[in-house]
């Protein structure tokens, strides 16, 4: 996983980078399965390895698969990134151990979900009942965000596409189908 991540940074051929990023997502999905988070792994595999690879490949088809000439390393941003990274890693030392029963996250609402969700919703998959019922507001927000993203893409790209089609003459207009 580390190897694919590092290769993504250094390889200049963008096609290889896209494929490696998909591999990275797939490996992350395997990691989530090992951690028993099957739903998250499912999402990672479908979204990270599937759709985003496809969309990035689509973008490459529009642009080019060669990265522009390498810029020289800038010292101050590099130092800043290293500093932030070290602070974050230092911060993880205060976090509770993985799977610690006394961790704050496991003491707040989690016991109630584990004990009551089957009785209250009748669903064996707790992730679904938390996602759709207990945290319904959050999920609604997420759906609206996705909806907004689609609207944004339509406004930015779909509209421009239609205008350029109109401006570029009849012959192309005929076989290009309808505008987005």
């Amino acid at each position: 996983m580390l190897l694919t991540g590092i290769s993504v940074i250094f390889i200049r051929n963008l096609f290889a980078v896209v494929v490696l990023a998909g591999m990275f997502s797939l490996l992350a999905a395997v990691l989530y399965v090992v951690l028993d988070a099957v739903d998250v792994a499912f999402t990672e595999a479908a979204v990270g390895a599937g759709i985003s690879t496809l969309l990035l490949l689509g973008t490459l088809a529009l642009t080019t698969d060669k990265e522009l000439a390498k810029t020289k390393i800038k010292i101050i941003p590099l130092l800043l990134v290293i500093f932030t990274g070290s602070v974050l890693i230092l911060g993880t030392r205060d976090m509770p151990n993985f799977g610690d029963a006394k961790a704050p996250a496991n003491l707040h609402v989690a016991p109630r979900y584990i004990e009551e969700s089957m009785k209250e919703t009748g669903l064996p998959n707790m992730v679904t009942s938390v996602l759709a019922s207990y945290r319904g507001y959050d999920t609604f927000g997420e759906v609206v965000v996705i909806f907004t993203a689609a609207i944004g893409v339509l406004i930015l790209l779909g509209q421009g596409y239609r205008k350029s089609r109109r401006g570029s003459g009849k012959i192309i207009n005929k076989n290009s189908g309808e505008a987005e």
Partner: peptide, 30 residues
Amino acid sequence: QHLGILLVELGVGITVSATMITIFFVFASQ
């Protein structure tokens, strides 16, 4: 609860798939 969750998940699924297909088609027709 069961009915509500089923309906809500259906809504999520429809919006997500329509979004992905829309983004793909918009990109691909550029």
